[in-house]
Design a protein around this nucleic acid. Structure first.
Lengths: 194, 194
DNA sequence: CGTTCAGTTGACTAAGGTCAATTCCCGTGG
DNA sequence: CCACGGGAATTGACCTTAGTCAACTGAACG
């Protein structure tokens, strides 16, 4: 059942079959319906969840308004990294956008796993590096790309995103209003025709 | 001479005096004049530099236009994290904005340091976490704050920034044109008067 | 003293935000 | 199975704000 997770880990760190078996011990499967929350703000995030299948929206609330920070799909990990590492209450919410199955490891279990197999330490550091890279990518895109460019990049990297995620969330993630996204899309198809 | 660096390290990881002495062996001092480059794009970044005193601008070039991604001052570290960890050519440039003294550790030396004292491994992971956190902070600010808010937050966290950094770089970092920053500043002083 | 470049200001343009009305789609309940 | 209700998406009108281009000012530097 943890097959996809194992493939994922193997890609990050070279691991023997025996080492991979450890995952069975420390990860727990879980499932969420559409609109369910994996994490709500104010709580401490004590887990990392690997998405086997599904879609998850990361958002925080500012002045009563939701701000979608990221969208995660199959074969990626989600957590509130800061809360997880520092043990502080998180400001992030993680919500399933469709029926989503995940494998979860708690911080406690991860610590155990580190002890049992040192190679997973490297795994931990590389996870941090991935988070850093993803955040850098998003920040750079915001600073150098116009909304239209961000939209184009997004559909290029996730062609099926409009089938899986409501447009208002995509707009929110792109940092624009739903109306603007609608207009941008319109503009682009019109351009293509002419 | 490495005093500030030692204080910095001690804050991140508890280290004995003997362990701190290792830093003398592995870090090299260096100095840069205003406008000097610590790193230019296309090269592999094989170092981490701790800024003892000075200011450094991070920028990348897109379509011939410079995009300032971050500004770093005293008591912080700079590197192209991705290039450093993966050994790939970097797209970032690091430029001194004033006379800047740094302590530099090469990747080779860092590896040595890891070997000689395991505690510094933790240091490495925490560095990655810091990078992740900083990038997340910048990304979130872009997605939820208007330019004016970002400006206000910036002067709040760095009240002396306008004395140290040219306004055009600040504008660029905020993701707006120099003219807009000028107008925003104008708008705010006018507001304050009324 | 003149050159250069940063910063400001003005006029105009372009693009996104907001609000409201309308249409579309989907799920629910009768 | 159909009709209805409600949220999502689109569209239009108007507003606000940033971008752009150009002119001007002022300070730093040789």
């Amino acid at each position: 059942m943890l097959d996809k997770l194992k493939v994922y880990c193997k890609l990050i760190v070279p691991l023997t079959d025996n080492e991979l078996k450890l995952l069975d011990k420390y990860f727990e499967p879980a499932s969420f319906d559409k609109k369910d929350y994996l994490l709500t703000d104010g709580n401490v995030c004590n887990f990392i969840a690997f998405i086997s299948q599904g879609a998850i929206r990361h958002f925080h609330v500012k002045n009563g308004v939701e701000k979608t920070c990221d969208l995660s799909f199959d074969n990626s990990s989600v957590t509130d990294f800061q809360s997880f590492t520092l043990g502080t209450p998180c400001i992030m919410n993680l919500q399933a956008l469709e029926t989503t199955t995940v494998f979860v490891i708690t911080k406690k279990n991860l610590t155990e796993l580190y002890k049992e197999c040192g190679k997973y330490e490297t795994f931990g550091r590389l996870m941090a590096e991935q988070v850093a890279q993803r955040a850098t990518e998003i920040a750079m895109s915001f600073s150098s790309d116009k909304p239209e460019e961000r939209y184009l990049k997004l559909i290029k990297s996730h062609p099926d995103i409009f089938q899986r995620v409501q447009q208002k969330y995509i707009a929110n993630f792109l940092g624009i209003s739903p109306e603007s996204l609608s207009r941008i899309r319109n503009r682009i198809v019109t351009k293509r025709k002419s």
